[in-house]
Lab assay of single mutants.
Amino acid sequence: AVSDRLIGRKGVVMEAISPQNSALVKVDGETWRATSGTVLDVGEEVSVKAIEGVKLVVEKLE
């Protein structure tokens, strides 16, 4: 799938994300809905860990 190429890519949080709420991230110039197990604020850099349906699963870039 096209989205599989995004695993391992870096992105930027466009809307705050919490474990209860998905929000938008920008990866390679494209906007995607994403979820995370932690709270992520706007502007934080993230890494794509997986794809669940049409959502990216991201975590904060260390």
Rank of each mutant, 00 (worst) to 15 (best):
A1S: 11
K26H: 08
V25Q: 00
L6N: 01
V13I: 07
G29S: 05
V13Y: 02
S3V: 09
G43Y: 04
V39R: 12
G29W: 03
L6W: 06
S18N: 09
G37C: 14
T38I: 08
K60I: 06
I7D: 01
K55T: 15
N21M: 11
P19E: 12
K26R: 12
E59R: 05
D41N: 14
V42W: 04
V58N: 00
E62C: 13
L61N: 06
D28R: 03
G11H: 01
P19Q: 10
A23V: 14
V57M: 05
G37S: 14
G11R: 00
V39P: 13
S18W: 10
V25L: 03
L40W: 04
S3N: 10
R9L: 11
S47C: 15
E44W: 09
L40E: 01
S3Y: 12
V2H: 10
G8I: 02
K10M: 08
V27Y: 01
I7N: 03
G37P: 10
E59Y: 05
L6C: 06
E59F: 05
L61K: 05
R5W: 10
W32K: 00
E59K: 06
V46F: 06
E62G: 12
G11Y: 03
A16T: 11
S18Q: 08
G37A: 14
D4S: 13
G43H: 03
T35E: 09
R9I: 05
V54E: 15
V13L: 08
E59D: 07
T31A: 07
A50Q: 05
W32H: 06
E62M: 12
R9F: 07
A1H: 11
R5N: 08
G11W: 01
L6P: 00
Q20V: 09
W32E: 00
A1T: 11
L24I: 09
D28K: 02
R33W: 15
K10Y: 09
W32I: 00
V2K: 09
K60Q: 05
A34P: 01
T31R: 06
R33T: 13
A34R: 00
E44P: 02
V13Q: 00
G29R: 03
R5D: 07
A23M: 15
T35W: 10
A50G: 11
V39W: 15
S22T: 12
K10W: 10
G11A: 07
T35F: 09
A1N: 11
E30P: 00
V25Y: 03
G29P: 02
W32G: 00
V58L: 04
E30L: 09
G43C: 14
R5C: 11
V25T: 02
E45T: 11
D28Y: 03
V46D: 00
E52D: 13
T35R: 06
G29E: 07
E52T: 08
A50W: 07
A1C: 13
V48Q: 00
A34W: 04
K10P: 07
A50N: 06
I17E: 15
V42I: 09
S36G: 05
V39I: 11
E59L: 05
A1L: 11
R5E: 06
E44T: 12
E62I: 12
L61A: 08
V27N: 01
S36N: 04
K49R: 10
V57E: 03
V27E: 01
N21W: 10
V2C: 12
L56G: 00
S18E: 07
G8A: 03
S22W: 13
E30W: 08
V58F: 01
D4R: 13
I51H: 04
G37V: 13
I7H: 03
V25A: 02
V46L: 01
A16G: 08
D4F: 08
S18M: 08
S47E: 14
E52K: 09
K55G: 08
R9W: 06
G43Q: 02
V57Q: 05
K60D: 01
E45P: 07
